[in-house]
Structures are given as structure tokens and as C-alpha cells.
């Protein structure tokens, strides 16, 4: 399974995840993909190394610690480790990789789907507002409405597969679409398709009526 992924995360996305500068929804995409993809896990670790070297080479910046800083830190240490947020116990990777299960509260059977028309369903995940993340359910053989993008949209297949003008995407594959791209993904006929989609801008659908639907459905 791990060797079959053909469409990977880009270097700028991995670098920004390592740097800690991505919106939460994109962090979720990276964490979910890397859970399925050793290739990107290794690339990501390499970008952590670059971060370590950026830190190491800070020497000439003349930042100094306040007087008594070490003593204050020793006092912190003797107070014991800071309370850490305990994540709920994860089940093994199911249809949803672990990081997604943390947001859904379980695997696929815990997703609270909302229909958005033509058999397509979505579930918006609670992330910070600078970008949005949602799960999409597209019935086998069905098409998503044709849509363009304002910002960057990334879509990863979790179950089934889809085909669009660009290529064929199966579990773990990520499609990155930017503002120039209009596409019509069609789910493979063999199985209902479930995807994680993240975007840093609202999608725009072609036509007036969908715009109203868009406002209601938040897609």
C-alpha cells in the first residue's frame, strides 16, 4: 500500500509544515498524507533538519537571555513537566488516518455527513478560520460540480478513486489545484469516493444559483 501513492505533497507545503507556518487545515492534510506515505515522511524529516540548521546558524544575532534565566529554567524543571493536552486514544489507521480520526472523533462511522446535492455529502472539520478542511463523499461514478478556485485547494483520496482532466487519483494521492484550474472530478465506478479537501479560500462555482447554494453549504 505504501508504495503505490503517485501524487505527493509539494516541497513548499512540506517546508511550510516543518516551519510551522501553515494554516491548521493544511497541517491536517500534511499529517494525514504523511501517515500514509513514507516517501513524504522522509522528505518532511529532511525539512525538520533544515529548520534545525536555521536555528543553529542564528549565532550572529546577538540575542541574549535575561539575567537569572538559567536559574528560572531550573525552577521550571523542578516543578515537573508541563501538563500536556492528551489526545484521545487512537485506533489503528482505518479509512481515516489517525490525525483525521482526532478531528472526527473516530473512523468513518463517526463522520456527521451533510448532503449538498446529487448524492454528494460533506463534513466540515473544526479548524482555525484561515483555511478550511472537509471530508467529501462522492457516490461511485458521480461527478463533483465544475468549480474554479481563488486560492490553493488540495484534495486527498481516502477511499475509492477519482479521475479528472489531469490524472487518476487513488488512496493517499493528493491533487493540488491553484486559482487557474477548473476541473470536474468524477468518482471511480467501483466504490464511493471519500476525500479530504482543504482550501485557503472559498471555492467558486460557475453560475448564479450555485453561488447561493455555496453560501448555505459553505463549500
Amino acid at each position: 500500500m505504501h508504495n503505490e501513492i503517485k501524487h505527493h505533497l509539494t516541497d513548499p507545503i512540506l517546508m511550510a509544515y516543518a516551519a510551522g507556518t501553515l494554516p491548521e487545515a493544511f497541517n491536517l492534510m500534511v499529517a494525514a498524507h504523511v501517515s500514509l506515505c513514507d516517501h513524504c515522511r522522509a522528505r518532511l524529516d529532511a525539512f525538520d533538519v533544515v529548520g534545525g540548521e536555521v536555528l543553529e546558524q542564528q549565532a550572529g544575532n546577538a540575542v541574549t537571555m535575561e539575567a537569572g534565566s538559567l536559574a528560572a529554567t531550573m525552577a521550571l524543571i523542578s516543578g515537573g513537566p508541563a501538563d500536556e493536552i492528551r489526545m484521545p486514544e487512537r485506533k489503528a489507521c482505518g479509512v481515516l488516518p489517525g490525525p483525521l480520526q482526532d478531528y472526527v472523533g473516530g473512523d468513518l462511522d463517526s463522520v456527521r455527513w451533510k448532503p449538498i446535492g446529487l448524492g454528494v455529502k460533506q463534513a466540515i472539520l473544526p479548524t482555525s478560520k484561515d483555511a478550511s478542511a472537509r471530508l467529501l463523499f462522492i457516490p461511485a461514478g458521480a461527478a463533483m460540480p465544475d468549480h474554479g478556485h481563488h486560492g490553493t485547494e488540495m484534495t486527498m483520496v481516502l477511499q475509492g478513486a477519482f479521475q479528472d482532466e489531469e490524472d487518476y487519483f487513488a488512496r493517499g494521492d493528493v491533487e493540488v489545484a491553484d486559482s487557474d484550474m477548473h476541473h470536474t472530478p468524477i468518482a471511480d465506478v467501483h466504490e464511493d469516493c471519500i476525500c479530504l479537501a482543504v482550501t485557503d479560500a472559498p471555492l467558486r462555482f460557475n453560475g448564479v444559483l450555485p453561488k447561493i447554494a455555496q453560501r448555505i453549504a459553505r463549500i
Partner: peptide, 13 residues
Amino acid sequence: AYFGELTHSEIAA
């Protein structure tokens, strides 16, 4: 890029 002065789309590949 690591200090957060670039967005991900500004980071060179």
C-alpha cells in the same frame, strides 16, 4: 520561510 515571513505559495520549490 522558517520565520514565517513567506506564505507557502511564496516558498520556492
